[in-house]
Amino acid sequence: MAKKKFHFNPETLSYEQIEHTIAHWLKQLMIHALSGVFLGLIFFFIFVSTIKSPQEKQLSQDKAHMEAQYKVLERQLEEVQYVMSDLQQRDDNLYRVVFQADPIPLSVRRGTSANTEYYEQLLDMTNSEIVVSTTKKLNELRKELYIQSKSYDDLILLAKNKETMLENLPAIQPVLNKNLTRMASGYGWRIDPVYHSRRFHAGMDFTAPVGTNIFVTGNGTVQSAGWEQGYGNCVQVNHGYGYVTLYGHMSAIKVRVGQKVKRGDVIGLVGSTGKSTGPHLHYEVHFKGQVMNPQNYYFLDLSPAEYDRMVQMSNNAGQTFD
Rank of each mutant, 00 (worst) to 15 (best):
3 K>N: 12
7 H>T: 14
9 N>E: 12
11 E>Q: 10
19 E>I: 15
25 W>R: 07
27 K>L: 14
28 Q>R: 15
30 M>P: 00
30 M>R: 09
33 A>C: 14
38 F>K: 11
42 I>K: 06
55 Q>E: 09
64 A>Q: 15
73 L>Q: 11
78 E>I: 14
79 E>V: 05
83 V>E: 12
87 L>C: 09
88 Q>W: 03
94 L>H: 10
94 L>R: 06
100 Q>K: 11
102 D>R: 01
106 L>R: 09
109 R>I: 14
121 Q>D: 09
126 T>Q: 14
128 S>M: 02
134 T>H: 14
142 R>D: 09
148 Q>K: 05
163 E>D: 04
169 L>R: 15
176 L>D: 15
182 R>S: 14
189 W>K: 03
193 P>Y: 09
204 M>T: 14
220 G>A: 04
223 Q>V: 06
225 A>P: 08
232 G>W: 04
236 Q>G: 02
240 G>Q: 02
243 Y>N: 03
244 V>S: 07
247 Y>T: 13
247 Y>D: 03
255 V>Y: 12
257 V>D: 04
267 I>Y: 00
277 T>V: 15
280 H>K: 13
281 L>A: 11
281 L>I: 11
281 L>N: 11
283 Y>Q: 09
288 K>T: 05
289 G>E: 06
290 Q>G: 01
291 V>Y: 05
302 L>N: 10
304 P>L: 02
306 E>G: 01
310 M>K: 07
